[in-house]
Design a protein around this nucleic acid. Structure first.
Length: 555
RNA sequence: UGGGGGAUCGUCUAAUGGCAGGACGGGUGACUCUGACUCAUCUAGUCUAGGUUCGAAUCCUAGUCCCCCAGCCA
């Protein structure tokens, strides 16, 4: 693993410290147990970093276990994407890859054991009837008429359920606990249901499938998990988790600990709704760069290191919270700033003709690849009479704090020369179409021998000696901070994608490959999209640079 | 109106009876061949009301507000 361990402590690590100190455990075993019914998202990353991070720091083990007990929703495609994403994030389960479906036989035997103890029974109430018998939050439930069948009858019926003798929905296996329990989870929960559906791994071997509550605790126990870390909504289920293990599994038992799942402003983690975005074509797929999925973030240009750092720094607690998206971006920029080679890309080009620069001449100027990293070296950047600068770097009538190019003003072209705007050419509608300028040959490389200063440095590319590119600019997919309230479509940001087709980038980007990352100086971080070809480069804006000027501008 | 959880700067998170600290965000400066980065500095918090204590975010009592649970989903 290439992960560094500077993870701050948290209440879960405190529990583990205590368990180690007291001698309750000698080694720690955790697990990440996704259901393969969707793609992993940034919320899963928090759980992955937590579980694998603990295993790494305590020299323990973390298992990857697919919780694949519902054949109707689960697919092999998801299994593959999940494994790819966990690896991409920088974690490795080594030989510890498991499937709950591998335990189906054992689980079945545990169910039989429970029946033999008189603690489970086959119930023939319909789903609707079971719901009615369950009672409500304030009223106790009532016993199923099938609750007091003999052990022999239950054994026989359960066996026949397994043999496929009964129709879906006609029979279930239920734990016999307490229909009056204040915790509704304990009101004779369903343990097995009949589903005459092929399972993506076990095929048609089974037509009864265990429920989550029955499967999860036993899977944990079978794997000798010491700390079973899950999210807050399973707090009520902990009683059942412990109950089942107490009936059929020898000590020691894994301990379930719940933490608050990640909520990120302007994004949504609900797998159901993410699926909807994909299915409705609102996004281009699970890996749309606006998606909070790991594959989306990867395509957008996020780095595993930044995501890990983020997950470590947001902390772990039991309080529901909403992390500011800006914090994720902060962690991202911190990483990208250190690691991204710089280049120049002009998103919205404005032509500048340098009148005193010889026609047809091309010279190569040296640019630093990464001021944060001297080892990154330098590159040669072609310069010529006609160049492009950023449209927003010129103003006809600049306000006081605008330092960039304006009529009569001198600025620096990064790594190149000082130029002075001498004229502005407009079309019939008054739109600025071209800038005329002169350069000072004495300022080659970007500094003046006479020591005079300029207030601004602009990025640029040579008109001929640059490459056309498409640049995709992204904003939050949702326009509201918490899109999980209200209707999905009402919360969508109509401007979450802007495609710039006329961008120009440095010639040096000719051989850039998908996922290559760059800082376009003064703009932001960009990465090559998978749609990119040598003939037509396509970049995604990963995140813009912090921009104090835009704040000044607003005032 | 049952049960299970939770509440600390705008946000996230520490402090485990002993200086309420850090990070993000925001403000102001400095620096700058990226209005970036970096640096300095400021901003701002213990849900409420009582109590115990030399001392309470922490313990006690009573409230308030928020989240989760009535799938044959996980």
């Amino acid at each position: 693993m290439d992960t560094n361990s500077n993870t701050p402590s948290n209440f879960i690590r405190n529990i583990i410290d205590e368990d180690l100190a007291s001698g309750k455990h000698q080694a720690i075993v955790t697990r990440f147990p996704p259901e393969p019914n969707g793609y992993l998202h940034i919320g899963h990353a928090k759980s992955i970093c937590l579980n694998f991070g603990i295993a790494r720091d305590y020299k323990g083990t973390c298992h990857l276990r697919f919780d694949d007990t519902n054949p109707e929703k689960e697919e092999t495609e998801y299994i593959e994407s999940i494994m790819r994403d966990v690896h991409w994030l920088g974690f490795d389960w080594d030989q510890h890859l498991y499937y709950a479906s591998d335990y189906f036989e054992q689980l079945y035997n545990f169910a039989v054991e429970l029946i033999k103890q008189g603690k489970a029974y086959v119930c023939e109430l319909s789903a609707e009837e079971i719901r009615q018998y369950r009672g409500t939050l304030t009223e106790p439930g009532k016993d199923s008429p099938y609750r007091n069948r003999s052990v022999e009858e239950n054994l026989d019926l359960f066996e026949r359920m397994k043999q496929g003798e009964f129709e879906e929905g006609s029979h279930v296996l239920r734990a016999k606990i307490d229909m009056a329990a204040a915790n509704i989870v304990m009101r004779d929960p369903t343990l097995y249901r009949i589903r005459k559906v092929d399972h993506h791994r076990t095929g048609d071997a089974w037509c009864i499938y265990p429920m989550y509550d029955f499967t999860h605790c036993l899977s944990d126990a079978i794997e000798s998990i010491t700390h079973s870390i899950c999210t807050l909504e399973f707090e009520n289920n902990r009683a059942l988790y412990e109950w089942i293990l107490e009936q059929v599994f020898p000590e020691p038992h894994p301990r379930q600990i719940e933490f608050a799942r990640l909520n990120l402003s302007y994004t949504m983690m609900s797998k159901r709704k993410l699926l909807e975005l994909v299915n409705e074509g609102i996004v281009s797929g699970w890996d749309d760069p606006r998606m909070p999925t790991l594959s989306g973030l990867r395509r957008r240009g996020y780095t595993p290191a930044a995501i890990r750092d983020f997950c470590d720094r947001i902390g772990v607690s039991k309080a529901n919270s909403m992390v500011d998206y800006a914090f994720l971006e902060h962690c991202l920029r911190e990483d990208l700033n250190q690691t991204s080679p710089r280049t120049m890309g002009v998103l919205r080009p404005l032509k500048v003709v340098i009148e005193n620069y010889p026609e047809g001449q091309v010279e190569y100027l040296e640019g630093v690849n990464n001021p944060q990293d001297p080892d990154a070296g330098t590159r040669q950047i072609p310069f010529a009479r006609e160049i492009y600068i950023e449209e927003e770097d010129f103003m006809m009538d600049p306000p006081k704090k605008f330092f960039r190019l304006a009529p009569g003003r001198e600025v620096r072209l990064r790594f190149a020369y000082f130029i002075t705007c001498t004229d502005v050419i407009k079309d019939e509608e008054g739109n600025i179409v071209e800038i005329r300028a002169t350069y000072d040959p004495e300022t080659k490389g970007g500094s003046a021998p006479d020591g005079r200063k300029v207030k601004a440095t602009l990025h640029w590319v040579a008109a001929e000696h640059s490459l056309p590119a498409e640049v995709r600019i992204y904003d939050h997919l949702f326009k509201v901070e918490n899109p999980s309230v209200g209707e999905l479509e009402d919360n969508l940001n109509p401007n979450s994608l802007e495609i710039l087709t006329g961008a120009r980038v440095e010639l040096n980007l000719k051989n850039a490959k998908p996922e290559d990352k760059f800082q376009f100086e003064r703009q932001g971080y960009f990465c090559v999209d998978q749609d990119s070809t040598p003939e037509k480069l396509v970049f995604n804006q990963t995140v813009p640079l912090r921009d104090t000027w835009s704040k000044v501008k607003i005032k």
